[in-house]
Design a protein around this nucleic acid. Structure first.
Lengths: 121, 121
DNA sequence: CGGAATCCGATTTGATACTG
DNA sequence: CAGTATCAAATCGGATTCCG
């Protein structure tokens, strides 16, 4: 597919194999993935740290989302062979590239929150 | 809560009422919401148009997600009293403000797709 | 045309207990 | 500490039927 095509591809499936919007949503759209990534952007985190930082998510979902992010080459898992065990998750290059997306996301949330303040006051 | 606090709030619940990341994910994080919004950003769409543009989603989920976006003041529903009926969905001001978020989202997807090309070639 | 209502099976998510 | 295993609950999808 030529570059000009997938750059603007908005077709419905199955013609959307290279639609950037659907691609991003497929990779980052998991229920907890962006929230997990928001913490990994601040630096590498251990499994227990993430569990504490995102208490809404269960252990099962946390490990499941981390595994999927690993398969999609967004995060990398590092095991330190020691007792007690230590495992760290850190972003790959593609993971770090979500930074601008997050800045836009945070900007939108701030604007929305300010409206909420006005409405509920 | 002072502005400086919620701007950077990364606390775990229940201290995160004003976390911009969690706010955005709560409002826009529905399974199909961002995909629906990506089409509404191009202009108002009728119910049937959205159904055709996003064939992955069932009628039930489409109407459900649209209702939630309406409750969160992201989209507005306009009924034209005529036969046959015509209903249009268009973005509110807060809905239109997701544009920068989408540009970042599309940019990330393009970068990720290029890597995929390299890997699968 | 643009929905609403219902039933039902499949998938996803969650709670709890347990392990190397 | 960093997960697994198991079972229950919630959500989602698909089909069908009906309505203004």
């Amino acid at each position: 597919m030529a570059e000009a095509e997938w750059k603007t591809c908005r077709e419905a499936p199955p013609l959307n194999a290279f639609c950037p919007v659907r691609t991003t949503l497929n990779v980052l759209g998991g229920k907890w993935k962006l929230l997990i990534l928001s913490y990994l952007l601040e630096g590498p985190r251990r499994y227990g740290e993430l569990k504490r930082l995102v208490p809404e998510i269960t252990e099962k979902m946390l490990i499941q989302e981390l595994r999927e992010l690993e398969l999609d080459a967004i995060v990398q898992r590092t095991v330190y062979q020691q007792v007690p065990p230590k495992v760290e998750y850190h972003l790959t290059e593609h993971g770090r590239r979500v930074q601008p997306l997050f800045e836009a996301l945070i900007g939108w949330g701030q604007g929305y929150l300010q409206r909420e303040q006005v409405l509920t006051t």
